[in-house]
Every structure is written in C-alpha cells, then in structure tokens.
Design a protein around this nucleic acid. Sequence first.
DNA 1: CGTATGACGAGCC
DNA 2: AGGCTCGCCATAC
Length: 115
Amino acid sequence: MSQTLFDKVYWIVQRIPAGKVATYGQIARLLGIPRGARTVGWALHSLPDDMEVPWQRVINAKGVVSTAWEGDESTGQRALLEAEGVVFDEQGRIDLKVYGWTGLDLAEWQQLQET
DNA sequence: CGTATGACGAGCC
DNA sequence: AGGCTCGCCATAC
C-alpha cells in the first residue's frame, strides 16, 4: 500500500519517547525533505481524531508550542508535556538541548526506509 | 493544471 | 533581541 507522507509522519511521531520532543524540521529531514517542515506541520494538522499520535511532542525549532490550541489547562499541549516530565522555562519554551529527541535508532531508521 | 494554504525555518532589518 | 518576510514542500480546490 502506498504509504502517504502523512502516514510516515505519524509513524515517526509515534516513536518519539515520552518526555522527549522533536521539531517539525527534524521530522521533515527524516522523511528526506529538509525544507518541508511546513508539510509535517500540516500532516499533524489534519491528524485524524481516532488515531493515537503523541503530536504534543512535536514543536517548532524555537522550542515553543505552536498550537495555541490551549483549550483546557488539563488537556492543553503544555499540560500533556509537563505530565511527561518536560519542563518549560519562564518564557514557555522547552530546552531542546535537554528534552530534544535524538532521533530514531538504527532499526527504526531502516524500517522507515522500507515503507 | 494553476493558485492558495499551512501545527515551519532561516535570514534580514 | 525581537519581529517581519521570503522560501520550501506536499495537499486542497
């Protein structure tokens, strides 16, 4: 079945460990489109509700949560991340040096190439 | 098939 | 340092 770019994005995001965060640009590079950060963002934008994807672990390069989605204090993206151990600074940003995802391990990377 | 759009990014002012 | 503009890539219409 022809995996769409979206499916790959979801596949990768689902492999980001709890307590870690990745940037759109980082995921785009994994997909082979170094300048396609926007496309990744769009993929998550149109994420089906019935799909379990920790999209909250995907943020922009500034270490800030883009989705002003904030709906609720207990369900907001920030609350979800803090519950996983991610710490925000006074400016509401995440230190990517500490919580940044290092990437897929070798086995996962190879599996991605096959899809 | 051309134009518009979007959870971004890097560069310039 | 902070804010604005242009560039990129894959879908939607």
